[in-house]
């Protein structure tokens, strides 16, 4: 499949998938960047900010692909869309905890680890599935991203296993975070309303198959660390792939685009 010959429904499916991939990385990377200087120790601050930087780079690659498909300049795609035009899963836009990144941030490291780890597993599965993608530029991008993703997954898996098998307090905080993330993580595992067209265009494998892989992996990890597996994650607050979002996304977008919006026509 290529840009010139693809049918309108194929193009639509591809654009939808690219927005999902881009926005998931973009918004979670933004939330990660708010953690800068606040991680549990300095070594983690260095590692976490490196991961966020990689994820911002991945989002940027997807935005570039959208630009090539005529969706507009990648900076305006990233900074000027309205919340309902975003396709990220709701759990990824959730604030890191009480306070803001500038004043009194009482951020929750257990939530950060659980959200990032679950996402890293899902992202890995998605990227591996994109190896069969019929759109070559996306297939190639996924290959590049996968090389960095390997280390992100290792990083978060180590944190997850260490904390969940340590002190009683750590275990309690981690299981609380798991319950919180589980309520909405289903949103990451869906391909949204255009799912049938996405699969039909051979862009990625079937949604049910990807979800099954994620569940299998999680069930094995839960067993390994002695946790009860809670079954399929839910999507309680809505489907981000349909443009359904919380006020947390509005807050994120107004922060990340504050300077750009002062004058989108200017050179920055």
């Amino acid at each position: 499949m290529n840009k010139e010959t693809m049918k309108p429904e194929e193009r639509q499916a591809l654009v939808e998938l690219l927005y999902q991939l881009a926005d998931d990385d973009f918004i979670l990377s933004f939330r990660g960047s708010e953690w800068l200087g606040l991680a549990p120790h300095i070594e983690e601050d260095v590692a976490f900010s490196s991961i966020n930087q990689d994820m911002m780079g991945h989002a940027s690659m997807y935005f570039r692909l959208l630009e090539e498909l005529g969706e507009g300049d990648s900076d305006s795609i990233a900074h000027l869309r309205k919340p309902e035009q975003f396709r990220n899963a709701i759990i990824l836009e959730e604030v890191n905890g009480p306070g803001t990144y500038l004043e009194k941030p009482d951020y929750d490291w257990a939530f950060a680890v659980v959200r990032n780890y679950f996402y890293a597993v899902a992202k890995q599965i998605r990227l591996e599935s994109l190896r069969i993608c019929s759109y070559e530029p996306l297939r190639e991008a996924a290959k590049k991203i996968l090389m960095e993703q390997y280390y992100h997954l290792m990083h978060w898996e180590l944190w997850f296993k260490q904390l969940v098998t340590s002190t009683d307090e750590a275990k309690k905080r981690m299981t609380d975070a798991i319950q919180k993330v589980w309520k909405d993580f289903g949103g990451v595992l869906t391909l949204g309303p255009y799912y049938a067209d996405i699969v039909k265009a051979n862009l990625i494998e079937d949604e049910a198959l990807l979800k099954k892989r994620w569940m299998n992996k999680m069930e094995a990890v839960f067993k390994e660390v002695g946790l009860d597996f809670p079954g399929a994650p839910r999507m309680e607050r809505g489907n981000g792939r349909k443009g359904e979002h919380t006020s947390d996304l509005e807050g994120a977008l107004s922060t990340l685009s504050e300077v750009y919006r002062a004058n989108p026509a200017a050179g920055w």
Binding site: F30, S33, E34, L36, G37, M56, A59, S60, F63, S74, D75, A78, H79, Y101, L102, T255, L256, E258, V259, Y260, A262, W268
Partner: peptide, 10 residues
Amino acid sequence: KEWVPKAPSL
């Protein structure tokens, strides 16, 4: 850090 999330382009 105050400006990291707000930087005005990708």
